[in-house]
Design a protein around this nucleic acid. Structure first.
Lengths: 117, 117
DNA sequence: CTAACATGTGAACAACTGTTCATATAATCA
DNA sequence: TGATTATATGAACAGTTGTTCACATGTTAG
């Protein structure tokens, strides 16, 4: 940030600035939070979560449902697996995925109803 | 999607697939939903929302708080304005921003506490 | 064993996005 | 009026990301 970009309002509002700085969550917390939201910021992943929220589905099922390639779905599932938002069960060649817990769909449902008009 | 990418599991799981397809929210809804989540998927925007959730702040204040340039903040504020997540009030040269309503911070708070461990 | 198939994964590519920079606009002050 | 300052905004650039493609792995059937 260059010198010219610093506003002079700073001194006037220093009290509000100081207060806001203190109330701001730690960088680590914000980063973790936004990282999770970003995962929900992709239609494909939201659809996958919706699809596996009520029943067990294998990768090909999900691909068929979303009209996508199994490869694309597999890539997205890895992200959801890493976050432990979905769990999986192998059965022969197939791998069945389910929602790890109801928290995520609750969040989505709540978002639909309240926060996001 | 090429022929080779279509799985043969389809016929076996056709019932589950059909059911999942019906339960899936409309594309329009999912798109709108994930679009909003994407906005929260950026640390800068989350920080801005936190900052203006308790007090009125001008662009330079926010820039100072987040250690960013006023220009970068202004760009992000436009996105938040378009979504009507923040409201603003002009006073001379300064433009003061506040949270439009408590729904968004509620969502974030809830996410911190419940859905997102 | 070999062929077929479901899934996983790395590389490559295209599309998107946040920041910076330059500049415009609007308001205040000398 | 002219200078300064706060904010807005378009273009450019760099970094990120989702999909596709090719291929590897592992399992089942013949």
């Amino acid at each position: 940030m260059l010198e010219q970009d610093i506003c002079e309002v700073e001194t006037t509002h220093s009290k509000a600035i100081q207060e806001a700085k203190l109330n701001l969550p730690r960088d680590e917390v914000v980063l973790k939070l936004s990282k999770r939201f970003k995962v929900l910021g992709e239609p494909t992943r939201v659809k996958i979560l919706f699809a596996v929220s009520n029943r067990e589905l294998c990768v090909c099922d999900i691909a068929e449902i979303l009209s996508a390639t199994p490869s694309a779905i597999s890539h997205q599932l890895r992200i959801l697996r890493d976050l432990k938002w979905v769990k999986f069960r192998k059965e022969g060649k197939l791998v069945y995925y389910t929602l790890a817990d109801k928290h995520i769909t609750n969040l989505i449902d709540m978002s639909v109803k309240h926060a996001i008009e």
